[in-house]
Nucleic acid binder design. Sequence first.
DNA 1: ATACTAAGTTAGTAATTGATTACTATCTTT
DNA 2: AAAGATAGTAATCAATTACTAACTTAGTAT
Lengths: 203, 203
Amino acid sequence: MILPKTRLPAEARQLEIVRAVLALAAEDSPDAITTQAIAQRMGLTQGAVFRHFPTREAIWLAVVDWVEQNLGDAIAAAVTEARDPVDGLRRLFEAHVAFIAAHPSVPRLIFNEMQKPADHPVKQRVRGLLDRYRRRVSELLARARAQALVEPELDETAAATLFVGTVQGLVVQTLLAGDPRTLQPVARRLWPLYLRSLGVRQP
Amino acid sequence: MILPKTRLPAEARQLEIVRAVLALAAEDSPDAITTQAIAQRMGLTQGAVFRHFPTREAIWLAVVDWVEQNLGDAIAAAVTEARDPVDGLRRLFEAHVAFIAAHPSVPRLIFNEMQKPADHPVKQRVRGLLDRYRRRVSELLARARAQALVEPELDETAAATLFVGTVQGLVVQTLLAGDPRTLQPVARRLWPLYLRSLGVRQP
DNA sequence: ATACTAAGTTAGTAATTGATTACTATCTTT
DNA sequence: AAAGATAGTAATCAATTACTAACTTAGTAT
């Protein structure tokens, strides 16, 4: 995709590069995305990329920044509107799924970086991101238990892991099927099962 | 790890190559494993690898063969010993987790290949492998429902996806923590939650 | 012992990749 | 309008990669 030939200020171009990476990651493994491919997608030459980022790794860190910002905003907005902790979990789940549906390349980035060596800087960022996410889920679960909305002896840590796993099982199925449209329908069928695992009394 | 310098017959050497890949994949992303690294691990030169495999891709197909064979055997053995479908699911879950604990590189391979382009041969093999696995889970769930061991209105497809997701949530946590020893303890805490999501009456 | 077979070595090649550099074109500021 | 700043170009580099082929040598059958 070659955009109309324009010069962009550095900040805007950096964002364009991040978006190009996200777009390319929807179709191929993130490691396979070359600086050449990024440039080509923007209609620039390869050298131009290095005007805006000192190294390839710096690009990936910027992408993680983008994810952190946008996903963080999306789920924060969802949770604050919740009436109670269980409702918050549902909104969190839905917001998460909606975000992935809108940005299918994001889980691929996470799956990819996750298995790099432990000292890898990008992986550390991703680790922090997911840690905060799980902690958020744990807090909601703890409050749900305090309000007697779920099983009194609920194992919160395990339930938080299952929450993440529920989304991941979903994403894996989507990646296998190669059809992003199945994501949200399947998500709706998965949620009642997760709720029942918490011991929530059904309306 | 340099093994004692010996010549191996082709078949044995091929297996050694597969094992070298599995060992290397435990520490780094599969895509980052070069034929040079494989040879070095066996104490051979890079050219020797191509005595036994025509291309790099052929190595990965052999690795998938190995996984298919060994994981298939492990879970088949587990399920046949089951007293009833729900017991079968538990054994399947435990066998799966035990296999991953013994071969931590296997989920990394799957995560990695999963996001390649759809026409990628290795991905197609992995897809088939996981499809058969999920079908196996679905069948057990259908039989459990027929025997009234679980919620009568259970959504089997969704429950199968959640089964896979439960294992994956687990693996992700392990990959993040970087500590494979937490795998089985956390698995034991996750299982009761999954059972409850099926509507199984607890003993 | 000798000769044959096959595993492993050595020394390459072609292609790709991230990164650098000298230069050009465009925009902004004075 | 002149001058400086900056986005982008084009060419190139060094390193790495999968792969090849001519060779050497270990093991084995005769």
